[in-house]
Amino acid sequence: MNDDDVRNPVERHPRPDLPQQDQEHPGWTGPMDPPPDHGEESYRGSGLLKDRKAVLTGGDSGIGRAVALAYAREGADVLFTHLPEEAEDARETVRLVEEAGRKAVAVACDVRDEEQCRALVERAVAEFGRIDVLINNAAYQMAQPDGIGAITTEQFDRVVRTNLYGMFWLCRAALPHIPAGGSIINTTSVQAYKPSPHLLDYAMTKGAIVTFTQGLAQMVAADGIRVNAVAPGPVWTPLIPATLPDTKEFGKQAPLGRPAQPAEMAPAYVFLASDQASFVTAEILNATGGTPLP
């Protein structure tokens, strides 16, 4: 790869056809081919989040791990959640945060449970004394190519409770502990605007996250708290081989012709939490690889 290729976003990371692969949900980083890039070798911090205290859901792998790494290298301490079966991936996130010289706290937590969400906020306050940034990133999807009739009530309930209930409960519990100057960042998706039929229930929740973000931002603006969201396009994370039947052409639909790597999402979360975004609230930062969104 020459210097022009390094700068060329089309060729910067692996492109389809990717190897076909399948995993049980929730998926793990180790078996993925090619391995995701979380910024381990590339992300360089510059003190944008010095001494901030961040709470991040779904921080064991994928976008969450990339955000945890970037926040640590920008000077933040990070408490993040993972499912019990994701403990191995969570240990690697802890290692990356601590290697950056910051405090890492990994908490097994299922955000579908209100009591676990409440306990998570209490744990964060006990560890840090406050919450400067809350990142609602945990999500669940499961492709159903056979249409709405194949979406069971059990699946629908899991998607909605993970993607919406958990976000709502955590925001409600955390806001009393977020000082002026703090922020909330939610993860929505290109699916909020351009839903894929096989991800109908997931796309629906991502649309709701956009509305929630914009409404909550107005509600807490006078308190000096900003609320924004990031809308990723296709990103190469363990959720993909664990929930989609075909990984070979994943990301090919993006105008850049490939999926994003988690490391390419992290700078958006850093910017929105930093003082550089002091006049940015109720916004959706789209990182879709060229797919135009409203």
Rank of each mutant, 00 (worst) to 15 (best):
Asn2Met: 05
Asp3Tyr: 06
Pro9Arg: 06
Pro9Asp: 14
Arg15Met: 13
Gln21Gly: 06
Gly30Thr: 15
Pro34Gly: 06
Asp37Thr: 08
Asp37Pro: 00
His38Gly: 02
Tyr43Gln: 06
Ser46Pro: 00
Ser46Thr: 13
Lys53Ala: 07
Ser61Met: 06
Ile63Cys: 08
Ala66Leu: 12
Tyr71Glu: 09
Glu74Asp: 04
Ala76Phe: 11
Glu85Ile: 11
Glu88Ser: 01
Val97Arg: 08
Gly101Tyr: 14
Ala104Asp: 15
Ala108Trp: 04
Val111Gln: 14
Val111Pro: 05
Arg112Leu: 12
Glu122Leu: 02
Val125Gly: 03
Glu127Tyr: 02
Gly129Gln: 15
Ile131Gln: 02
Asp132Leu: 01
Val133Cys: 07
Val133Asp: 11
Ile135His: 07
Gln141Thr: 15
Met142Tyr: 03
Gln144Trp: 02
Pro145Tyr: 12
Asp146Gln: 11
Ile151Gln: 11
Thr153His: 04
Glu154Gly: 00
Gln155Leu: 13
Phe156Lys: 04
Asp157Ile: 07
Val160Lys: 00
Arg161Cys: 06
Thr162Trp: 14
Leu170Ala: 01
Leu170Gln: 05
Leu170Ile: 10
Pro176Ser: 13
Pro179His: 09
Ala180Trp: 12
Gly181Ser: 03
Ser183Tyr: 09
Asn186Glu: 14
Thr187Ala: 03
Ala192Val: 09
Ser196Ala: 10
Ser196Asn: 10
Ser196Gly: 05
Ile209Ala: 10
Gln214Leu: 05
Leu216Asn: 06
Leu216Val: 14
Ala221Asn: 13
Val227Ser: 01
Val227Leu: 01
Val235Lys: 00
Trp236Val: 12
Pro241Cys: 08
Ala242Thr: 10
Leu244Ser: 09
Thr247Val: 13
Phe250Met: 01
Gly251Gln: 08
Lys252Gly: 03
Pro255Asn: 10
Pro255Asp: 15
Pro255Tyr: 13
Pro255Lys: 06
Gly257Gln: 08
Pro259Tyr: 07
Pro267Val: 03
Tyr269Val: 10
Phe271His: 05
Gln276Leu: 11
Gln276Ala: 06
Ala277Pro: 03
Ala282Met: 13
Ile284Trp: 12
Ala287Asp: 09
Pro292Cys: 01
